[in-house]
Write a protein that binds this DNA or RNA. Structure first.
Lengths: 246, 246
DNA sequence: ACTAATACTGAATTGCGCTCAGCGTCGTCA
DNA sequence: TGACGACGCTGAGCGCAATTCAGTATTAGT
């Protein structure tokens, strides 16, 4: 129940046959998910009927309920596939980039581009689990955690490298990042803009999170520490002189 | 239809009587809205039934439909009242504050506090008009514009006063601000935190938007730079003395 | 008091999520 | 080969909630 997808009881322990059978079941499940995805994306959650999904998947309504406990579970399955793609894309992009700035820019653009393309799924995300109270532990929560973890790691690395101001709490930065992108998506869809705006949001956002004046700060640091060292040495010498002179 | 509330045909142009009647109608409408508000807040949009609302408002189901075209319109009416309060509160608070920082802090805290208390309404907001395509021109869009305008004015003033970096586009700052608060609300409700977190989000957020700190950092830079120079000169002098003395 | 207009009612209609009694298919065994 | 059992699949039917509308109650005007 906590996991809405049903595991159709299929225990027969036979050889090649079993594999084929399971594949058959898999493929039917996928067929339903794919059909559901298309209709959800086209019409949104509320306006999608199970009978639409069933006929698109070429099964009877009842069959859908053999694979998913209810409409909600079906939606969660569709969203799980979505998160899979999203997270995989994010991980891959981050892995192939070195600097904090590049990584954040990539994550921002990747997120924005994806949620624009599949905005209906984002709406579903909003209308499904918003029952906050028992949100922790939900399927969607876990998937979201896994995705956000990619960002969190980049952030933590960034703070360690002094690319990001460590005095601002990370969860606020996270909410700011994704919140901004989410809202920006809506703004961009309402107005007709597009390409330009994506670049703008991404660069503005990254600019606010990353400390770009770092270099200047570093050399300043060096100067100060050098100066301090020299003063200490000079002081030591003066002490020696003074003690001798005395 | 675009405005879902029905104007019950009441044209009779008479004197005091007419006023009384209109008041009666008004008050019944308000009674329904208030009933709807309570049930929406308690159970959310999907789980609220018209018959619940009707019985709470002490009218028949059909009567609800004399005042509102459908459930959606009823929800919009409830949200309109909500936005009214929200916007009024925001305007009032801003008017009584002078500095950009104070104003933004107030707006952030006011927004956060309100959406935490009435989070179900925010969920409704999410699940209702997310049909982006014909969002412009919708009731909710206009109310939202009016509310956001308060923030926009503060921002514009801030840029003029050089409290805010004018090179970051305002709409991005806006989306960042409200997006961050929206997401922060969810984070705070999922985790149990509360009071402390509100302060933290507010201060972090304002700190990232307002330059004053950055300005301080700028002058700090200069100060540090000056200090470093003076220390270096002093060190040089001391070295000279030391070497001469030797 | 009578009439017309308006407000209100709640039973009936409709649409959709979900269930379940029964059907068809296929592997197994005598 | 034919019968049996298991299991996936089917779609008519149930219940619930939004919405409608034919009829009833209330009010205003004369």
């Amino acid at each position: 129940m906590s996991n809405g997808t049903k595991t159709t009881g299929k225990k027969r322990g036979n050889l090649a046959q079993a594999a084929t059978l399971r594949e058959k079941v898999q493929s039917k499940e996928n067929k339903i998910i794919r059909a559901a995805y298309e209709i959800f994306v086209a019409r949104g959650y509320a306006k999608t009927t199970i009978s639409d999904v069933a006929s698109k998947a070429e099964v009877a309504e009842g069959t859908v309920y053999l694979y998913f406990n209810n409409k909600h579970a079906l939606a969660v399955a569709v969203l799980a596939a979505f998160y899979q793609r999203l997270t995989a894309g994010a991980r891959h992009g981050v892995a192939s980039r070195a600097s904090t700035e590049d990584r954040l820019s990539f994550l921002a653009e990747h997120h924005l581009q994806t949620i624009i393309k599949e905005r209906r799924l984002m709406e579903m995300l909003a209308s499904l689990d918003r029952d906050i109270d028992n949100y922790e532990g939900s399927e969607i929560y876990k998937m979201n955690r896994a995705y956000v973890a990619v960002f969190d790691r980049v952030l933590r690395d960034g703070v360690e490298r002094d690319d990001i101001d460590g005095s601002i709490s990370q969860w606020v930065l996270r909410d700011m990042f994704f919140g901004a992108l989410d809202y920006a998506m809506r703004t961009m869809l309402i107005k007709k803009s597009r390409r330009n705006s994506i670049d703008q949001v991404v660069s503005d956002l990254v600019r606010m999170i990353v400390i770009s004046d770092r270099e200047a700060a570093m050399t300043m640091d060096k100067r100060l520490s050098n100066a301090a060292m020299r003063i200490e040495r000079a002081a030591a010498r003066m002490e020696k002189i003074a003690s001798v002179t005395k």
